[in-house]
Each structure stands twice: as structure tokens, then as C-alpha cells.
Write a protein that binds this DNA or RNA. Structure first.
Length: 485
RNA sequence: GGCCUUAUCGUCUAACGGUUAGGACAUCGGCUUUUCAAGCCGGUAAUCCGGGUUCGAUUCCCGGUAGGGUCACCA
């Protein structure tokens, strides 16, 4: 079963039933990392066999999402590959071919019942509190045997389980797994609309595409015996099975799914999250390299990734931690990158270089800038502050002292030559003044407030620097006259 | 309900028979300081319960409890 010389091939096989959410992306990331780590192949395959649930535009959406994350595939839509096509609806010939093989081997038959009839069997079993098994109603196949079995495609094609037994298998994450006979049944291979079911199609595709590691969520564990019985019937080697633990919703109770508020991953783009931060964060949901380092670039993730370190239990989605990771990535941006990242969220009049650092250290994602603007935290820059003059008073300092301190500050600022007018010099000069006082706040607070008009703001040196000499003088003068009136 | 599976701070996790059970996020406190942010330092906080096995269990086994998954002509 083990063949270490075989080139690693993984795939991400979403169905186009809507947007992609973080669970799907995490599966894609793991498959991607494993392929890249082993210099293998990462395939993107579209599983569009359910025409009922298909949502128009989702293939494009999936592709766009994957591209945003930088998860480039080696074979798949757009770029093709040796096993094209990569859309199941275009691979119907393959499924027919293997259906025929199964038919000839006696492991497939036309389902004689209508959907309603099967439903009656199911209801009856339910009433009798027995598990429903289709194979208990399996028609007499001896009539078909001998001759080339007939199946005209008007009825669904069912799989005939070769052997009813307990299946045991090795999962690279969960280890030894097993399931009893009740997990085995005559499932449908090809539906009456001519499209194969997932159970059948993915196995044929994985076989033809040479997939070595099948990574998927743990919702597939219970149907694994069905897959195994099909491998047996086909007489093919089974790939390595790698089951991923689920990502749980914020309440920690349920698997994170679309109906539990899982967002379209592109919304994270809209909110200003960085794709590498997302990959880093998502990789650490259910996997951990073991050290104390938490920030891993994509390259480092590829090196460190190891299936044996994937966890077994569900990991709860945590927005706070994501924000922290994203902030770490913002900090790592170059000055130029920070600027363009921040500017994207700013109106023209606020796209000023000097604003970049003070915004950068106050946000963890782009959309926080929107919040800052809405809260008026950047108003000081282009609007003269409006405030109650009492706010200029530091604690219970005498008003006259505040006025004289502001006058002193004004003098220092006025005397500063334009070419020396920067936050470092201003800080040196003003701090000298402040230190001569019994409390620095007696000058620094009114100064800061005169410039910003805000309870919370950057320090006065930065403010004075950003506002420029002229505007700074103007605002201090105004504060002095306010207080004097 | 049957079957499968999981279980370490609030959260993500490390420790794969011997540790004062480690780290990160969050939280709380301190420093810096004029406020906020950032930064630095520190605190609170966990092995689900009960039995075994063992000189010794977070770790191995069994049972319980709780959670999750699954029982489709969906994937």
C-alpha cells in the first residue's frame, strides 16, 4: 500500500454551490502545503455533479478566492493539465467507462425502484426503529447475471457491495479507524440525470489523476467504508486518507458552516485582512508545528507542515486571534506597502504619508480605519477642533498656568526654523519645557488637546508635526484666546 | 436512536509514562507616559469524571459524561 517513491498529488475539490468559506480554504491550504512540501502536484477539481444545487458564478468565485490566497494549482481550471478536463460534468465518459466495468464484474445494477418506492422502505425502517439499508431490498440480480447486464441509464445505477464486512483502515491523522456492516450499502453510482454521485465520481477522478493523498473534512469518515468497498470492487489501490478536524463556530458547539454564519472568504479581503495572515491563521487551526513561534510565512509553513501534527479535535473560530495575526503581518509590511495598504482605506484628503504610522499602530485590519474615521479620530487633521475650553485644563491646574504654558510652547514652536520642524526636535524642545514643570501634563495635555480636540489622540509632537507649523500655531493661539475669554 | 469519533487555561495549542503542565490570543495589573495606541514586564487561569495498568499517568486500557460527525438520486 505504501509507495514512498510515488510523487505526491493532492487535490482541492470544491463543488460550485456558492461562496467558499474558511473551512474549505483550510482544506485547500493543507492540501496545497503538503503538495508543495513534497514537490508534488496540487490539483483543483470542480465537483459539479449536482446541477440542482449549483450556483451560477461560484466557479469563478472559488478561483478568485484561491488566487487571493495565493494558492496556485498545478492542474485545473484555466491552466488545464495532463488529466483535463477538471470539471466533473465534463468527465462523464470516465464515469461511464468505470460503470461499465462494475456492471461487467457484477458490482452494479439498475435500480428497479422509483424514488418514492425507496422512500417507503425508508419510512418503514424508521417506524420499526431499524436503520434503513437499501441492500435489504436489493432486487434479484440472478436474472441479470450471465448475460451482459443491462442498464439503459433511465434508472439510477447502484453499486452492489462486494462483501458485507467490518472495514478497518488507517487514516494519516486519526490513525486506526473502523466501521461496522451498517456503514455499507448499495449506494447510487450514477443518478437518473446521468451525473455520477460524489461517492463514485471522486474515486474515479482521484484514480485517473493519480491523487496520493485525499484530504477532506471528518464528515466523510462515516462514508469511508463505502469508498473502501468501491476500491475493492474496482481492484484499485486506495490513496492515503487524511481526515481534517472541523472548524467550529464562535459558540464552539457546531461545525462552522454557511448557515452558522461562516463568511464568504472574500469578505476578509473586503475587511482588509492580508491573505498571508489568513493562511497563517487558518493553518494553525487544527495544526501546529510544535514550537513557540506563531508567525509563519507561506514558505515557512510549507517547510514546517506535517500531516502527523494535525490535531483530532475541532478548533473554534477566534476573531481576536485572527486580528492579532493580521496586525503582526501589517507590522511586517515595508513602509511603501504600509502606505498603499492604509491609503486604500482613506479618502483623498487624508492620504498623507505622516498619517500612516499613527494609523498603522492603531488598527489590526483595514476596516478598522473606517471605524476610526467614523469615530472622528482623524478629524483633527482637516477640521479645526471644536471643544469645550475646560477640556484644556490638566487635572486641577490653575487656568493661568495653563495659559502661560501654552504661550511658552507657542514661543518655542514659533522660534523653530521650518527645516528643523519635525516631531523629534519638537519633542526635545517641548519636553525640556515640560520637565521644568512640576508635572509634564500641565503643558503636554493642553497642547495635545488644543491640537486634536480629542480625548484620545497621538501625542502633541506627532500632531504638531502632521499639522505643520502654521496650523499648529493657529490652534494654540485659539486655545489661548479661548481660555483667556 | 444506530454507527463513527473527540476531550489540556475562556480560546488556539505544547508536553507522544517522570515538567513547578510550556507558549500564544483574550483578560487583569505594572512600567513608559499628557490621553490613546504601540512597546516592555508581570498576574489570574487547564489535564471532563470514575476505575484500572504502572514505582509513576495529561499521556496506555475500560466505563461514564459531554461535544462533534454521519445515516440522500448533497457533496
Amino acid at each position: 500500500m505504501e509507495n514512498t517513491t510515488k510523487k505526491v498529488v493532492t487535490r482541492f475539490a470544491p463543488s460550485p454551490t456558492g461562496f467558499m468559506h474558511v473551512g474549505g480554504v483550510r482544506t485547500a491550504i493543507f492540501a496545497y502545503l503538503w503538495a508543495r512540501k513534497n514537490n508534488g502536484t496540487f490539483i483543483l477539481r470542480i465537483e459539479d455533479t449536482d446541477k440542482e444545487r449549483e450556483v451560477e458564478g461560484s466557479i469563478e468565485h472559488i478561483i478568485k478566492s484561491l488566487k487571493w490566497f495565493g494558492l496556485d494549482w498545478d492542474e485545473g481550471p484555466d491552466i488545464g493539465g495532463p488529466n483535463a478536463p477538471y470539471k466533473q460534468s465534463e468527465r462523464l465518459d470516465s464515469y461511464q467507462k468505470y460503470a461499465k466495468i462494475l456492471l461487467e464484474k457484477g458490482f452494479a445494477y439498475a435500480d428497479p425502484y422509483t424514488e418514492d418506492e425507496v422512500e417507503v422502505f425508508r419510512k418503514k425502517a424508521e417506524e420499526e426503529k431499524r436503520p434503513f439499508l437499501y441492500r435489504e431490498h436489493r432486487p434479484d440480480l440472478s436474472a441479470q447475471a450471465g448475460n451482459p447486464p443491462t442498464w439503459d441509464g433511465s434508472k439510477p445505477l447502484r453499486f452492489k457491495v462486494p462483501e458485507i464486512k467490518r472495514y478497518e483502515w488507517e487514516d494519516l491523522v486519526f490513525g486506526h479507524l473502523s466501521a461496522g456492516e451498517e456503514a455499507l450499502d448499495d449506494f447510487i453510482l450514477i443518478k437518473s440525470d446521468g451525473y455520477p454521485t460524489y461517492n463514485f465520481a471522486h474515486i474515479i477522478d482521484d484514480l485517473e489523476m493519480g491523487v496520493t493523498h485525499v484530504m477532506r473534512g471528518q464528515e466523510f469518515i462515516s462514508s469511508t467504508p463505502k469508498f473502501l468497498s468501491l476500491y475493492d470492487a474496482l481492484g484499485i489501490e486506495r490513496p492515503h486518507l487524511v481526515t481534517l478536524p472541523p472548524i467550529m463556530g464562535k459558540d464552539g458547539k457546531k461545525k462552522l458552516g454557511k448557515r452558522d454564519g461562516a463568511k464568504d472568504v472574500l469578505e476578509y479581503d473586503d475587511d482588509g485582512y492580508l491573505p498571508e495572515a489568513m493562511i497563517n491563521f487558518l493553518s494553525f487551526l487544527g495544526w501546529n508545528p510544535g514550537g513557540e513561534k506563531e508567525i509563519y510565512s507561506k514558505k515557512e509553513l510549507i517547510e514546517a507542515f506535517d500531516i502527523s501534527r494535525i490535531g483530532h479535535s475541532g478548533a473554534m473560530w477566534n476573531d481576536d486571534k485572527l486580528d492579532w495575526v493580521n496586525k503582526e503581518y501589517i507590522k511586517m509590511l515595508s513602509e511603501g506597502e504600509k502606505e498603499s495598504y492604509i491609503f486604500e482605506w482613506l479618502p483623498k484628503e487624508l492620504q498623507i504619508k505622516k498619517l500612516v504610522p499613527i494609523i498603522t499602530e492603531r488598527i489590526s485590519k483595514g476596516s478598522d480605519i473606517k471605524t476610526m474615521i467614523e469615530a472622528g479620530e482623524l478629524d483633527f487633521f482637516y477640521k479645526e477642533p471644536v471643544y469645550e475650553k475646560e477640556k484644556l485644563i490638566y487635572k486641577d491646574t490653575d487656568k493661568e498656568i495653563i495659559i502661560s504654558n501654552l504661550k511658552n510652547a507657542l514661543e518655542v514652536i514659533t522660534m523653530t526654523e521650518e527645516e528643523n520642524y519635525n516631531k523629534e526636535n519638537l519633542k526635545t524642545l517641548l519636553m525640556e519645557l515640560a520637565d521644568s514643570l512640576e508635572n509634564r501634563g500641565q503643558i503636554l495635555h493642553p497642547l495635545r488637546f488644543a491640537l486634536s480636540g480629542l480625548d484620545k489622540s497621538p501625542d502633541p509632537f506627532i500632531l504638531a508635526d502632521i499639522l505643520g507649523k502654521e496650523e499648529t500655531i493657529k490652534r494654540i493661539n485659539k486655545a489661548i484666546s479661548n481660555l483667556s475669554s
